[in-house]
Amino acid sequence: MSRPILETRALRKAFGRVLVANGLDLAFEEGAITSVIGPNGAGKSTLINMLSGLIAPDSGDIFFLGRQITRLPIYRRVKMGLCRSFQVVNVFPELTAFENIEIPVLAAQGRAARLLSPLSGETPAGEEASAILSRVGLSHAARSTATTLSHGDQRLLEIGIALGARPRLLFLDEPTAGMNPVERTKILDGIKRISAEGKTTFVIVEHDMDVVFSLSDRIIVLHHGDIIADGTKDDIQSSSKVREVYLGDEVEE
């Protein structure tokens, strides 16, 4: 096995007396699509928030590409290639779709701080942004303001912004929430395609079991801040513990 792209050691976080990460030791392999699932309050979002730098863990370490990043500010993690999308629409509302994606692209190309040359001269950035727009299927909306896009398109744009930062590892927080079946297929195909290109490793938090089972090479199940199962689709489906704490709830829905 290759060296893990991201590793955590004894990662711990509690909100008051609620433990949401109980000394997590995780390793994500490069190239695989990993899903993190678990019932509400299992600590999925907290895990992503800690790994992406939004909140600091109480203790423990995070290593990305072999480097300690536990206390690194968000934007530095992003520059290293550790990116994320959000569960709710979190775009730049009054900018065009193209500009939305141009921002992370400029940052990734190291040209964001240029202040005396016109943006229109940033051809490589423009090309990369256009490519990403067509990747997420929004080429037609390039000049539309983000707020005028449909909810589904805004979610696609959300993922486009994350891709714009040239992620080596990309966390997707419920990427298909609030999407219609057509958009959902579009996004799942997109994830598979980008994953197959081999440059981006995906870690997905998802509620929808169809999505999880169709995409994932590996599934991690969290419950009350603990890993209760970790393996392939078959491992998870046959795990009695998962059935007990998780799928039980899910079946009732």
């Binding site: 730098g53 934007y75 992003v78 775009v91 730049f92 921002i103 930062a165």
Partner: peptide, 12 residues
């Protein structure tokens, strides 16, 4: 437009 997202675009 969104000072919470900008850091996740790799901007300090």
């Amino acid at each position: 437009e969104n000072d919470k997202r900008i850091e996740f675009a790799g901007i300090s």
